[in-house]
Design a protein around this nucleic acid. Sequence first.
DNA 1: TAGATTGTTAATCGATTAACAATC
DNA 2: TAGATTGTTAATCGATTAACAATC
Lengths: 215, 215
Amino acid sequence: MTEINLKDVNIPKATAKRLPLYLRTFLNLDMEGIDRIRSTQLSQIMQQPPITIRKDFSYFGSLGRKGYGYDVQYMIKVLEEILDVRETKKIAVVGCGNLGKALINNGFRRNENLEIVCAFDNNADVVGDKVGGIVVADMKRFKSVVRDKGVSVAISTVPSQFAQEAVDVIVDADITAILNFAPDRVRVPKNVHVQYIDLTTELLTLILLDEKLGS
Amino acid sequence: MTEINLKDVNIPKATAKRLPLYLRTFLNLDMEGIDRIRSTQLSQIMQQPPITIRKDFSYFGSLGRKGYGYDVQYMIKVLEEILDVRETKKIAVVGCGNLGKALINNGFRRNENLEIVCAFDNNADVVGDKVGGIVVADMKRFKSVVRDKGVSVAISTVPSQFAQEAVDVIVDADITAILNFAPDRVRVPKNVHVQYIDLTTELLTLILLDEKLGS
DNA sequence: TAGATTGTTAATCGATTAACAATC
DNA sequence: TAGATTGTTAATCGATTAACAATC
């Protein structure tokens, strides 16, 4: 799977992954009161070649104006539509240890319409705790709560040993998008998407690149 | 920069990024008492094609045995040497809000020899707090503490608005490897490496892929 | 030896970049 | 119009994969 279909255009996966970053950048510019920007300026802000930016945008038509640049408000409108962030995506957090609690407390950017609406844990000591306005529920209630609230995404902070178990419950509740903070690969049906956040690997990679390429 | 030089071999960056994952996988296998594994079995565990695995390993010589597979203990030894995890890397956490505290409490895999040894914050309310055995120090003391302790990596959980400021202090203390949880790009000298962890973008990308490609 | 699996060489595929025409 | 910047086409570059020879 190397291209994805967005609003009837096939775009490279590499481009798709950059779209959220573009949206945020334009939102930031808008907040600063900037209403027009060139690809070379964007390039400096995002630390990414201007030609990559122009090429990425070109998949969706002629979004800029030659000799002028891009209209910030217009780009926000276009990207919001492409990314379908108009309606709020509801998120469940599974595992309410330190990391789970931190995620709930921090929340996510309101602009991008992501909202944590419920949280779960197995541990009786934690169930019933109130974290950032959310009462932690027992994992046994996952399926019913999640359906009631219309949750479409789950974030699991459950430790590796129990990650598969947690993911099985999530999948059973018909959730197909999972962000997993445990790095070991879990088995899921083909229609379920798991994204891994692996801090140890990120650190080791960073250190490796830092040590081996001095510049 | 597309290749990096490791133990006098040039290897693709894509391969380098997978090395930490290989190491962890072999460590897991070792803990389960498995002492030999084939690329096809590794492939299932890591959910990655066997040929990619064999190709990656081949950059470092003939590590496996034809008709047999790979020796787990031997691969651990080789990867530990390549990744230079024999000696502990000391880490400073900058910003001790929810996320910073969660990282300190969770710690990192002992196996991979990463250790958080100090933590800093600007906020007088937080300075002096004890988190997971570490006393939070004032950011003003960053340079001297970090030098005393021999820290070589910093993790910043400082919010976007203050991220540049924090990174400037980190860079001034001669640290060249920074893991940054604020997604906006910061300016650093060419010899400094910044890795970004952007949870909002990860979530939006996940949702995008999930919605647009049903399978 | 026969069977199995690695490791290499070559082909393919995707992503990035260069050159430049189009046009505001 | 002249100047600037986009957007397209083609070239390059890197990563992945296929085919298969080597060999344990």
